[in-house]
Design a protein around this nucleic acid. Sequence first.
DNA 1: AATGAAACTTAATTATT
DNA 2: AATAATTAAGTTTCATT
Lengths: 155, 155
Amino acid sequence: MELDALDRAIVGALVEDARSTYAEIGHQIGLSAPAVKRRIDRLLSSGAITGFTARVEPSALGWTTEAYVELFCRGKTSPAEIGLAVSRHPEVISACTITGEADALLHIRAKDVRHVEQVIERVAAEPFVIRTKSAIVLSRLIDTPHARDAMPQSS
Amino acid sequence: MELDALDRAIVGALVEDARSTYAEIGHQIGLSAPAVKRRIDRLLSSGAITGFTARVEPSALGWTTEAYVELFCRGKTSPAEIGLAVSRHPEVISACTITGEADALLHIRAKDVRHVEQVIERVAAEPFVIRTKSAIVLSRLIDTPHARDAMPQSS
DNA sequence: AATGAAACTTAATTATT
DNA sequence: AATAATTAAGTTTCATT
């Protein structure tokens, strides 16, 4: 699906505040409320926007510690197998397979360092895991879900 | 601030769908719409919820490639200095200082591998960066902003 | 094909108990 | 906190370009 400048402006407005009204967004970009609604409905059905969520302050909810854990896996472990296994651990908030020595990289969020340690132990107990290599987050500098600029040009 | 079970249920409902109505949330948890609104207002002013955002499909917007980049920095480089520098690169969507050999870990999102390479070159050109070590994401298995379970108990 | 204006429906918000 | 009353927004329809 092709997004024009207005679509990208709407996406930007919704990323900033998913609860803005159609009229507010329309005023920003020079469109009427119904026109904005129609475009948002289209962005939703096309899959460009997948939903709306609350930004929560993890520390306010008691999740104070983050870590990144590299996974080194047995010979022919499939990405699907890793995904299935790590999705059983709710503290894993992000996981991907990567190039390089390690096979996968997990991002985990836990209550404290003790809790992080327990999660790593549980993950390391998965049968396909040979070893892990962890780094605790000392201070977070940036945390945005998406790139912080204009969408790419149609060039 | 203390969050009770109802607050945590409200946060959960808003994380799932930030555009649900107060009445919908109230029905799920057994509260009237005005009561839900009062609690959400309180969660916002206390900072437990920091805002509402759209979940966008990066690939739909042309951002198809992700990488993680470890930064090895000169002796006494402060976290603030790293944060300031990397925030100038909009493709850096997450950054933190970490324990271990590397000083910082960046998560970048770009249009393609060529674009990733350009960003790494730009970051590596920062005066405090000695060297970098990158891993390209092959396949994403999990991507959630928060832990996928109930909030921690007050225990 | 997409928009804006108006009509209509539903939700947000305030006041009251 | 719930109910009721009011205000504002969401949504549909329709005429227009």
